[in-house]
Design a protein around this nucleic acid. Sequence first.
DNA 1: CTGTTAGCGCGTTCAA
DNA 2: TTGAACGCGCTAACAG
Lengths: 352, 352
Amino acid sequence: MNERASGRQADSEQQLRRATMRDVAALSGVSIKTVSRVINGVATVSDELRDRVHKAIAQLDFQPNLAASSLRRTDGATRQIALLLEDVANPFSATLSRAVENVAREHGTLVFAGSLDEDPRRELELVRAATLHRVDGIIIAPAAPDHGYLHREIRTGTPVVFVDRPPRGLAADAVLCTNTEGAREAVLHLADHGHTEIAFLGDEQTISTVSERVAGYRAALAERGLPERPGRVVRDLPSPETAARAVGALLDSEHPPTALFTAQNLVTIGAIHALQERGLHERIAVVGFDDFPMADLLVPRVSVVAQDVLEIGTLAVRRLFERIAGGGAEPREFRVPTTLIPRGSGEISPPA
Amino acid sequence: MNERASGRQADSEQQLRRATMRDVAALSGVSIKTVSRVINGVATVSDELRDRVHKAIAQLDFQPNLAASSLRRTDGATRQIALLLEDVANPFSATLSRAVENVAREHGTLVFAGSLDEDPRRELELVRAATLHRVDGIIIAPAAPDHGYLHREIRTGTPVVFVDRPPRGLAADAVLCTNTEGAREAVLHLADHGHTEIAFLGDEQTISTVSERVAGYRAALAERGLPERPGRVVRDLPSPETAARAVGALLDSEHPPTALFTAQNLVTIGAIHALQERGLHERIAVVGFDDFPMADLLVPRVSVVAQDVLEIGTLAVRRLFERIAGGGAEPREFRVPTTLIPRGSGEISPPA
DNA sequence: CTGTTAGCGCGTTCAA
DNA sequence: TTGAACGCGCTAACAG
């Protein structure tokens, strides 16, 4: 009765049964409910009983079963949230993950991390897995084109906060960066260093993100009275390799640009590769959207418009916990400002 | 009865109660147990009842409560594991995290990710949190100096697999890389390019990791009949800044090295910074332990001994699921081989 | 301040 | 093939 019929042990030792509240109650000679009170820090327990219970807990190494507890509890909180990102291995997602963990820790809650890989089906799967586990809330950098399906989760008490990309077909909180303003600032920066021939290179992850950045690019050109030449806006570059090829094509065109605004991380990296291969990395100006590790070790150092990823994550998770606590405010969109970091590549002048 | 007294809704709509098996049973006119059988794919249910149940499930959007289920089921599996890493935001941890997620997904289980920050107390906290949630298993890149406290968890049925660093004071599975052989190969590589004055720079995260790498360094020197000059082994470099200073000191010393073996990521980056500042990055050879993003965009490209992080993570998580399934084999240490990647910085010859 | 009863949502046991 | 009773570990509502 103190062991289980299982082959799980690593050696020949018997597998131990975990102590329950009943065991603690029996050992300390109180009722199970008194143990519960002690565990939950309810004040109405005499010092003597509390001591006895604590001793029994220590002796048995009792660890309360959180799942059983939240099953019974009125608020039903499970003290776990889900964080669904593009890919936990990329620096943006990884940093976001850390920010969320830091705040979740203050709330005594654990974080499920999952990768969507830009796959809407994967998004559905992971959201479903999260609700099966009855997470207290979800933070999501979405891949799906429509999020109406989340309405049901929100209505049944699982708040959802979007990061990086806004919800579609659903009213929900979102924490985004200032895509348009950031892109505009980058392109103005290039223009102010004398460039009139500036190309835009972007990926196609989310139409909203890319289109906001294109809008910023165009706004900057318009502000400086620069024309947008045909073929200067290249999108749909899913990898550094395709980005490198696109840069090659631009440079080989009739009117090659003298500056590049690369609207995403991997695109920036691909562009730098292409420029290095042609020996043009000291002649063509580059400003990238999103900072990346090592950007200040390259030659030239890479100027970027940086997102404050920690701030985005922190805002998102704080908002989520407000919702979990019962905040019934209207859904809101938060915008975290970007910062231009001049390091060298964006300050290259055009050829005289 | 179909709503809850809670302020959680985002707008003025009523909060919905989640459907339970009881609701499904009532709507489809069968017993709760039959619903349970359908959910769990037990064959002994007539087609007609199964259909009725499926319809009711769809109509009510019923999602079984995994926690309640595992509370009752014999194996007690919760379909969640914990992954405790140095810092989910660093590339090594992030890649490991992705490998674990990929395999966990095949097993229908979610992954809690947590950061230890080299803090033993944090390790205890997170392991405790994981057991409170009754995770099915734990993968850990440990920070604590002793892991005896985990013996109890393993005995109560929570298997633990170590990654990157071995357990101490505990017999448990571990997946590590070939630190000694990798370091040896790096230093032999430098020696074979003509270097006789090779310095070792390392951090101090784990004595075992660093000391294995030092052992490899010394083995290589011995094999080539090279003496180890005093002061050539520098450890305890926690950051790129301290590493950069250490490189400066070495270069200013009486017998400056002509090649550096940097035994950890951040140390490598700090060393490159220092060399760049002195304009020596094309003259002093460098081989780093651990690959890092952008290593092939720097000038010169950085030669490294790379760990196969995906393989380490995959092995670890596979082993964990074997344990969860009840594999009672002896604890084992797996070693994943490293790979030397020559890119330029390690092939610089010493001055004639 | 303490204990008793009931039941969260579900799987198991066993009888029909 | 189906269902009733029971209990997993815990907390809520009430009684004393």
